[in-house]
């Protein structure tokens, strides 16, 4: 077995070589004086390869049926038609792969901005995790609040709300920043239409899904709904889910949660998810059940 450190070393070495290769190439093009304009552009930064829509990118030279390949790509986020350099990926494919992986890492390690919390008229509390590292290594602490934070919740929130909706970073702050605002506003509007009262929204830092059970018990909510960033992948780092439960209690079976997943620009649009969640909450209140007990 190769240790993680050894892998790191190899990757570092490869990257160094790769960096060297790029430098050499650039030097060549300068000498031949063909790419002077390109140099000027680079002062504004390199082109952002993550802005390329992978579903529309075909790297196969002279494809037999370009339209057919594009239609096939339209039906999947998988990286089809990337071609190869010898037995390996092309540089562009490799870089994109690494860039997407980096975005996934960033999504986990960045924090939801204070500006986001303020813009949505929320206040912030945190679970018992003291840092991102602790949050990642101690899932149990991410489900609990200390007395201080619970006191803030109880003080600032409407008691015994029909529906308590809050937002939590989970494993992707990027997902929360990208979707939570639109989804939250749409749910609140939808519920208003059904004459259902919504409690005080807030933000929970270092939150796992299970923190909703503590929130539910602490506030005495009939329904609790958390909008939470999902573990990012290479397709998107922006996927958010809603977990909804009727009278959630600490230690209840996971099967009592209803999930609406895959909320992102390439999945279910944030507003459509919000409108759908409003409907689910309405049904949940009528049937007084959630998760597997609730047949939607």
């Amino acid at each position: 077995m190769i240790s993680e450190n050894e892998i790191k070393k190899v990757v570092e070495q490869v990257l160094m070589e790769l960096g060297g290769a790029i430098k050499v190439e650039k030097g060549l093009s300068m000498d031949s004086n063909t790419d002077v304009k390109g140099c000027g552009e680079e002062e504004d930064g390199l082109p952002d390869i993550t802005t390329i829509d992978l579903k529309k990118q075909v790297l196969v030279p002279n494809p037999e049926d370009l339209a057919g390949l594009l239609r096939m790509k339209e039906s999947t986020p998988a990286r089809l038609g990337v071609w190869r350099a010898g037995p390996r990926y092309k540089t562009e494919t490799l870089l994109r792969f690494r860039a997407d992986h980096a975005a996934a890492m960033d999504a986990v390690f960045t924090d939801v901005s204070e500006e986001f919390v303020a813009r949505n008229d929320m206040f912030a509390v945190k679970t018992m995790c003291g840092s991102k590292d602790e949050f990642l290594t101690r899932p149990d602490l991410g489900r609990m609040f200390d007395e201080e934070n619970m006191a803030i919740l109880k003080e600032k929130c409407v008691k015994n709300p029909q529906v308590e909706i809050y937002v939590s970073d989970g494993l992707s702050s990027t997902a929360v920043e990208a979707n939570a605002e639109d989804t939250l506003q749409t749910i609140i509007q939808g519920l208003k239409g059904y004459g259902i009262k919504v409690g005080t929204p807030f933000f929970v830092k270092y939150g796992r899904v299970g923190a909703m059970d503590a929130v539910s018990e602490g506030l005495g909510a009939e329904i609790t709904c958390v909008l939470l960033g999902e573990r990012p992948g290479l397709v998107t780092a922006e996927s958010m889910s809603a977990y909804i439960a009727y009278k959630a209690t600490v230690g209840m079976p996971e099967a009592r949660r209803t999930v609406v997943s895959n909320i992102h620009s390439g999945g279910t649009p944030a507003v459509e998810a919000g409108a759908h969640i409003a409907d689910i909450i309405k049904i949940m209140l009528e049937k007084k059940a959630s998760g597997l007990d609730l047949k939607l």
Binding site: T186, Q189, G190, G193, P269, V271, E272
Partner: peptide, 11 residues
């Protein structure tokens, strides 16, 4: 795909 949100908003 936006009819549910739009419908609720219109209402």
């Amino acid at each position: 795909d936006m009819a549910k949100a739009l419908g609720q908003t219109l209402y």
